[in-house]
């Protein structure tokens, strides 16, 4: 299945892209999907404390336990700093 992965701010700078498409095995869980993204998108592990990165699925914060579906919109970003 195919998913879209978005990056913002610092993670977009690290990866050098704002959006990538990834192929994941059917039934992948969120925590595994994040590992795949960290492995495939160079710059994330190098520039970030990965334990501090946030992960969302279809614009909702992930708890790591969800099952990813074909066409999902994932995003990886640093702690937010609006205001």
């Amino acid at each position: 299945m195919k998913v879209k992965v978005l990056f913002f701010g610092a993670t977009a700078d690290s990866v050098g892209e704002r959006e990538v498409r990834l192929e994941l095995p059917d039934g992948t869980f969120a925590d595994k999907a994040l590992e795949e993204i960290l492995d495939k998108c160079e710059g994330l592990r190098e520039n970030h404390d990965v334990g501090q990165l946030h992960f969302s699925i279809n614009q909702e914060y992930s708890n790591g336990k969800e099952t990813i579906c074909d066409g999902d919109e994932l995003a990886v970003f640093t702690a937010v700093s609006g205001g």
Binding site: F77, V80, S81, G82
Partner: peptide, 13 residues
């Protein structure tokens, strides 16, 4: 404002 700064996905450079 405290919660916005913690949860709303906005970043400042």
């Amino acid at each position: 404002i405290k919660e916005l700064k913690r949860t709303v996905p906005i970043w400042k450079k």
